[in-house]
């Protein structure tokens, strides 16, 4: 790598990209109630406070339930779409797939209010299930993007070979397709879990009286006294997200290696 102005620019870019996250632990361990410089001293008080907040625990439980459900649901639906996209030609294919991928570019506010209006109109109470439904819609495109990579990396004749050697379509899926796509499935589960855990707008519009973690956080941002605790929580979330991503990335690479392919890029 040559160290030219371009390299410098890229490094600077990375630095700015990471600036907010790097501030997070600084304030989380700062012994001061105001989120501002200069720093005061080191404390783990804010992390202790997290343990003593029942509302936070409830929100965390909610978020976990939602995120796990979304990960499973979106990955299952993503599997169907990714397989259809890589294996079949069918009428209106581009249109259908573009439509399923639409939530990727649609502002979340639009998705959220349209779901909310329908819920209100049907006289249904919003709750965890409605957030799960909304998040799944949002996560399917990401799941498809990841799984499409796994499927298209797989030589189609592998499945035909298994059938030719006497396996049924079902046992072929179990013996050949699943092992080869498994890393993609794990990556998709982790990514969908992360997205759902972080998602705010849909949860904000659709949560009834049981807030998710981001909705709870949003409420806390209004109280300056709670901010140091929010920083502590944020630190934990960021560390958790990064850990999940590293695992997801490892799985994705293992999948590539298993398929005997060279790495050609990251997610999406």
């Amino acid at each position: 790598m040559k160290a030219g102005p371009l390299t410098l620019f890229a490094l600077l870019y990375l630095l700015v990209l990471y600036a907010p996250i790097m501030l997070l632990p600084i304030f989380a361990f700062n012994d001061g109630t105001v989120i501002a410089f200069p720093l005061r001293g080191f404390t783990t008080e804010w992390f202790g406070l997290l343990l003593e907040t029942p509302a936070l625990h409830q929100a965390t439980r909610n978020s976990l339930v939602i995120a796990v459900s979304v990960a499973v649901l979106a990955t299952c639906l993503g599997l169907f779409a990714a397989r259809a996209a890589t294996r079949y030609r069918f009428p209106a294919k581009t249109g259908i797939l573009a439509f399923i991928m639409l939530p990727l570019v649609l502002p979340e506010v639009i998705v959220a209010i349209s779901l909310l209006v329908v819920l209100m109109q049907l006289g249904l109470d919003s709750g965890n299930w409605s957030i799960i439904a909304g998040h799944t819609l949002l996560c399917i495109p990401f799941s498809i993007a990841i799984l499409q990579g796994s499927f298209s990396n797989m030589d189609q004749s592998l499945e035909e070979a298994a059938i030719d050697l006497g396996e049924t379509p079902l046992s072929t899926f179990r013996l050949v397709t699943l092992p080869l796509v498994a890393p993609g499935i794990v990556a998709s589960l982790l990514i969908c879990f992360t997205i759902s855990l972080d998602e705010f707008i849909i949860a904000f519009f659709l949560s009834g009286n049981a807030p998710t973690l981001p909705v709870y956080l949003w409420g806390q941002l209004r109280f300056p006294a709670r901010l140091p605790m929010v920083m502590a929580l944020g630190t934990i979330l960021v560390v958790l997200s990064i850990a999940l991503l590293v695992i997801a990335e490892t799985f994705r690479r293992r999948g590539l290696r298993r398929a005997g392919l060279k790495d050609s890029g990251g997610f999406l």
Binding site: L14, I195, S241, G266
Partner: peptide, 13 residues
Amino acid sequence: FLITIPFWTSYLI
């Protein structure tokens, strides 16, 4: 990977 990481961390925060 380094460029996508910040994107996956809490938007609100």
